[in-house]
Amino acid sequence: MYKKIVLVLTVFALVMIISSCGALLGNSIEERVQQFEIDLNGSRSSIIENFSSDCGNYNAMNIATYWSDNTSVFDDDYKTFNIVIPSDPAETFTTTYSDNAGGPYNIKFYLVNEGDFFSGDNWKIRTIWVDDSVQIN
């Protein structure tokens, strides 16, 4: 009986831990870049969540004016952005994007997996190069 209770409690605890860690919120590389594209074309209020906390510019770019003003290379005025996402991309991959103003431009992504045992894969963007120029790192 005692063993049964321990087992039930252990399973319950694991379920709680897994659900609190956001196991269902994990992202593949493809999904992360897709989400970044959606956020670029949307309100951009949560765009920072696409980036790894290891980005050197994380705090510096965590300000609305960087994303909403005509400051970043992804100028708000150029919506809509369209990133060509290859199928099954590697953690570093080069592709192209265009926006309503111009393009296509070369864009290189480097992503890191911040997932863990509980959450599964959770890829985040670590670096973005546009035409060989580091824009976000």
Binding site: N57, A60, Y66, V134, Q135, I136
Partner: peptide, 8 residues
């Protein structure tokens, strides 16, 4: 390409 890094 120049404005973003300058702002950061």
């Amino acid at each position: 390409l120049k404005t973003g890094p300058l702002f950061l």
